[in-house]
Amino acid sequence: MPSHFSGFLLLLCCLIGLSSHAQERFTVRGTVPHYNGKIYFDNEGHTDTVLIKDKKFLYEGTIDRPFVLWFRIDAGIPISGNTFILEPGETVISMDTIIRRTGEDTCEISLKYQKMGPVNKVLVPYEKRLKIEIPKIRFAPEEEQLRFVMNDMRTLILKNRQSLAPYYYIINTGIYQVLPEGLLDSAYRDMPVAYKNGYFGQQLKRHLEYLDQTRVGQPMKDFTLTDLKGNTIHISDYKGKFVLVDVWASWCQPCRAEIPFLKTVYGKYHGQQFDILALSIDYDRQPWIDAVQKEQITWANAIDARGFDAELMQYFRVSSVPFNMLLDPNGIVIAVNLHGERLAQKLEELLPGKK
């Protein structure tokens, strides 16, 4: 079964944090009956330390939106930490430690809620159910897995339209990347105004704009780029050819790993109405130049040193690399993000018989 979709199934059980706007207060009150010491909360780039006193602790502060909070304790042996969704308002939990003695001793932390905020009220029982359901379909055909995800996400959204929980979930897990545009568009239109103006609404809007901008059949904007020698390159220079516009960076390992395959494709089809135009989003020119030389890349290479603020990235609402678009001889987008065998198959279809 294709591994890329299995990854999304696993992500359904594991929320991922992002970043946002206005600050709101949070309070976490907890009891820890069998442990005295310190508890560590890994709060997005820094660690907050809270002292457990009389088997109780208090953790409070401000956050700009809900996110997943990792926590751990000092146990003197390897720790299996735990997580919960930190959200504005009050959360009351109890924690306990469990020592597992299988080979190397490990300490696991269990978690129970006495009081939850609105996001946790929806997602805690939802994730408990997922942990039961997902193993049943993990090795099922991809079509069956996809059908499960679509139905499950549709139900989550429809049952909780006025809650932030479904919008938080589809963005934080990354599952929005495989959901159909119609479902996402409907979710965005039905979203309360306050959520539309918040972080998760804006992320969903950005993704819908990306889908609209990269829709197959759209003409490619005639971007002006600068190559290794400082020469100006226009997208329109490639009219009359099929051209793969490949966005990459020297620090992007998946991008670098793809270069040998692109060399094979380029060697097979170059000169036969096909070309590659690479755009680096490196912030510094030298690592880009070094990478082009080390990889011995022979197709045209340009750079926009604004990174993810590069004009092309902003225009297409792209937030990750590698990213590519295949244009037809008239400069029309005919495919987006074709990699590996999918790219090879598309080129064989467009340029049959080329050697």
Rank of each mutant, 00 (worst) to 15 (best):
M1V: 14
M1L: 12
H4N: 14
H4K: 14
F5K: 01
C13T: 14
C14N: 15
C14E: 15
C14M: 12
L15T: 07
Q23H: 14
F26E: 00
V28E: 00
V28P: 00
K38M: 09
F41D: 02
F41R: 04
F41I: 05
D42F: 15
N43L: 12
G45F: 09
H46M: 08
K56L: 11
Y59H: 13
I63D: 03
R65V: 04
W70F: 12
F71P: 07
G76H: 13
G76N: 09
S80V: 13
G81N: 03
N82T: 01
N82W: 06
E87C: 15
V92R: 06
M95L: 07
C107H: 09
P118Y: 04
N120D: 09
I134Y: 09
P141G: 07
E142R: 10
R147Y: 13
R147W: 07
N151Q: 09
D152I: 08
R154N: 08
N160W: 08
Y168T: 01
T173A: 06
T173D: 04
T173E: 02
Q177F: 13
L179C: 05
P180H: 09
E181T: 11
S186L: 10
S186P: 00
Y188Q: 01
Y195R: 07
L204K: 06
K205F: 10
R206L: 01
R206C: 02
T214M: 02
R215V: 01
K221H: 12
D222E: 10
H234M: 12
S236Y: 13
K239M: 08
K241Q: 15
V243N: 04
V247A: 02
A249G: 14
W251Q: 00
W251I: 00
R256K: 11
R256W: 07
I259G: 00
F261D: 03
G271E: 03
A278T: 03
Q293I: 09
I297G: 10
I303P: 01
D304S: 06
A310C: 07
A310G: 08
L312W: 03
F316T: 01
P322M: 03
D328W: 05
N330W: 07
I334D: 09
A335E: 01
H339W: 15
G340K: 10
G340I: 11
K346E: 14
E348M: 09
G353L: 02
